[in-house]
Simulated assay, not measured.
Amino acid sequence: MALCLAACVSREPSGRREYSGNPILPGWYADPEVAVFGKRVWIYPTFSAPYDQQVFFDAFSSTDLVHWTKHPRILDTNAVRWARRALWAPAAVHNQGRYYLFFAANDIQNNQQIGGIGVAVADRPAGPFRDHLGRPLIDKFHNGAQPIDQHVFRDRDGQWYMYYGGWRHCNVVKLKPDFTGLEPFPDGSRFKEITPQGYVEGPFMMERDGKYYFMWSEGGWTGPDYSVAYAIADSPLGPFRRIGKILQQDPAVATGAGHHSVLKLPGREQYYIVYHRRPLGERDPNHRVVCMDRLEFDDQGFIKPVRMTFTGVRRVRL
Results as ranks from 00 to 15, higher is better:
Met1Lys: 09
Cys4Val: 14
Pro13Trp: 13
Gly15Ser: 11
Arg16Ile: 13
Arg17Met: 13
Asn22Glu: 09
Pro26Phe: 12
Pro26Trp: 07
Ala30Val: 02
Ala35His: 11
Phe37Trp: 04
Gly38Ser: 04
Thr46Leu: 12
Gln54His: 05
Phe60Ala: 02
Asp64Arg: 07
Thr69Asn: 13
Arg73Trp: 08
Ala79Tyr: 09
Arg81Asp: 09
Ala83Thr: 12
Leu87Lys: 09
Pro90Val: 14
Pro90Cys: 13
Ala91Asn: 15
Arg98Ala: 12
Phe103Val: 11
Ala104Met: 06
Asn106Trp: 09
Gln112Tyr: 11
Val119His: 02
Val119Ser: 00
Ala122Thr: 01
Ala122Pro: 03
Gly127Tyr: 05
Arg135Pro: 10
Leu137His: 03
Leu137Asp: 04
Lys140Ser: 15
Lys140Tyr: 12
Ala145Tyr: 06
Ala145Cys: 06
Ile148Trp: 09
Ile148Glu: 11
Phe153Asn: 09
Tyr161Lys: 06
Tyr164Ile: 04
Gly165Cys: 03
Gly166His: 01
Trp167His: 09
Val173Ser: 01
Pro177Cys: 00
Thr180Asn: 12
Pro186Trp: 04
Ser189Pro: 00
Phe191Val: 01
Lys211His: 14
Tyr213Gly: 10
Trp216Thr: 03
Trp221Asn: 04
Thr222Leu: 05
Gly223Asp: 15
Ser227Gly: 08
Ile232Val: 15
Ala233Leu: 02
Gly258Thr: 00
Leu263Ser: 05
Leu263Met: 07
Lys264Asp: 00
Arg283Gly: 09
Pro285Arg: 11
Asn286Lys: 08
Arg307Val: 14
Arg317Cys: 07
